[in-house]
Design a protein around this nucleic acid. Sequence first.
DNA 1: TTTACATATTCCCATATGGGAATGTATAGT
DNA 2: ACTATACATTCCCATATGGGAATATGTAAA
Lengths: 122, 122
Amino acid sequence: MGMYSEGMSRVKTTYDVFSAIGDPKRRVLIEHLALKEMTVNELVTAVKWSQPTVSKHLSVLKKVGVVSEVKEGRYRRYRVQPEELRPIQEWMHQFEKYWGNTLDQLDSYLNQIQLKGDGNEH
Amino acid sequence: MGMYSEGMSRVKTTYDVFSAIGDPKRRVLIEHLALKEMTVNELVTAVKWSQPTVSKHLSVLKKVGVVSEVKEGRYRRYRVQPEELRPIQEWMHQFEKYWGNTLDQLDSYLNQIQLKGDGNEH
DNA sequence: TTTACATATTCCCATATGGGAATGTATAGT
DNA sequence: ACTATACATTCCCATATGGGAATATGTAAA
């Protein structure tokens, strides 16, 4: 009988917040929703991907809790749930001590942040 | 904004630092290396995965620059390059205002500066 | 109702990913 | 030179992933 030859554990199945933001398109969606809550169509218009693509990425983000969905008639309004990103921030904390401890670095750091206001990717 | 010009897409080929830490095993490796630099075998012993598995994940981390490799005889000593994780921290910054206080580091640093300017310089 | 609209879901495909076994490649030790 | 060690790489497999087209579902509008 043709048995499979010992498939081993795959177990990648479950998304967590880290893998969720690993995808650049999902980060783009989050960046948009961080500015204001939006419907799917508004996002489709903004990012110019197909509607299923947007919906499916939103579905992943919703599954890990990074966005929430509110039904309004036939619309669904999505918004970011920033608390769900905290595990990332907390994980990053172990490295903060290595970063800028000079005034110059602090300055450029803050400037960079300010420039990022209109949203762009890394 | 995330510019995804029309046409090309779905080429996930290139790892970036976000997708690199999307994998839980790679985060485990980083956590170990954050404590001290280690050779591959030391990591294998520590995490109890196969050597190729460890090597391949290290290779991904090396490719995105999150770890660096130093050859010493037949050993390779890996260490974390925390600066390469900064894009993540910067990306996260847009959400910090929602949980308020993760700028501890910067805050305490600014306080230090103020105290220093207070009187005792060379 | 009938139709238009907003969005989710399914189907299918191509490719990416992760894992282990086997193997290749230096380098150290004898 | 021969062997052991440390590690990278290759090969093969099974599964996960992302994308678009087509379709289903639910709701509002006519």
